Computed example of a mutant assay.
Amino acid sequence: MPKMVLLAQYLNLAGNDLSEHTRKAEVSIEVEDKDVTTYASLGWKVVIGGLKSGELGIEFLQDVAPGEIDSIMWPLLGTVVPFETRLDNAAVSASNPEYAGSVLINGWNPIEGSVGDEASVSVGYPTSGAVTRSTS
């Protein structure tokens, strides 16, 4: 089985390639489990899938200069915007799938950290609607 080291992950948010500011990007998707157990299951719990949801978790290196990450993210607060991310910034392919959808920019932490820390911002945005996986 091949192994991979993330060296050039790609993140686009609201039409902005934010890869140079991104230290970490994670897409997590989950499905609710709905209990449909009846007496016929003879004491075994039976579940089916319900609603799907997801989150885009990001860690940015902060930059408050004009045109940089803080000035890009601040006006997006409270809006639903498209995102695209993949393991490598190379073209989308079977070995480099792209995950895309929309997220609600429901928060921004412009100042975060302790003495001696690099200036970084950690956020988690809920998906809004479907998340797709594309290989072409």
Rank of each mutant, 00 (worst) to 15 (best):
P2L: 13
M4E: 13
V5R: 08
V5W: 06
L7A: 13
L7M: 11
L7Q: 11
Q9M: 11
Y10W: 09
Y10S: 10
A14D: 14
A14H: 07
N16A: 09
D17L: 01
D17S: 01
L18Y: 03
S19A: 05
H21S: 15
H21G: 05
R23Q: 14
R23H: 07
R23V: 11
K24H: 10
A25Y: 00
E26W: 05
V27K: 04
S28N: 10
S28Q: 11
S28E: 13
V31K: 06
V31W: 07
E32M: 00
D35Q: 02
D35T: 00
V36S: 01
V36Y: 01
V36M: 00
T38A: 11
Y39L: 15
Y39P: 06
A40S: 15
L42E: 15
G43T: 02
W44D: 15
K45W: 02
K45C: 06
K45I: 11
K45L: 10
V46L: 12
I48A: 10
I48K: 09
G49E: 11
G50N: 03
G50Y: 00
L51A: 14
L51I: 09
L51P: 03
K52P: 06
S53G: 03
S53F: 02
G54R: 01
E55H: 07
E55Q: 12
E59S: 09
E59P: 00
L61A: 13
L61S: 12
D63V: 02
V64K: 14
V64R: 13
P66S: 11
P66Q: 07
G67K: 02
S71H: 09
S71Y: 06
I72A: 06
M73R: 04
M73S: 11
M73K: 06
P75F: 02
P75Y: 01
G78Q: 10
V80Q: 10
V80D: 12
V81P: 01
P82A: 07
F83G: 04
T85M: 15
T85L: 12
L87M: 13
D88G: 04
D88P: 06
D88H: 08
N89Q: 11
A90N: 09
A90S: 14
A90G: 14
S93C: 01
A94H: 05
A94R: 08
P97V: 06
A100M: 07
A100R: 10
G101V: 00
S102E: 15
V103Y: 04
V103D: 05
I105V: 15
G107M: 08
G107I: 03
G107S: 15
W108L: 15
W108V: 13
W108A: 15
N109W: 07
N109Y: 12
P110N: 05
E112W: 09
E112G: 08
G113T: 08
S114Q: 14
S114Y: 10
V115P: 09
V115R: 07
G116D: 14
D117N: 15
E118P: 12
A119M: 12
V121H: 05
V123Y: 03
V123N: 08
P126V: 07
P126G: 06
T127H: 03
G129L: 04
T132K: 07
S136A: 10
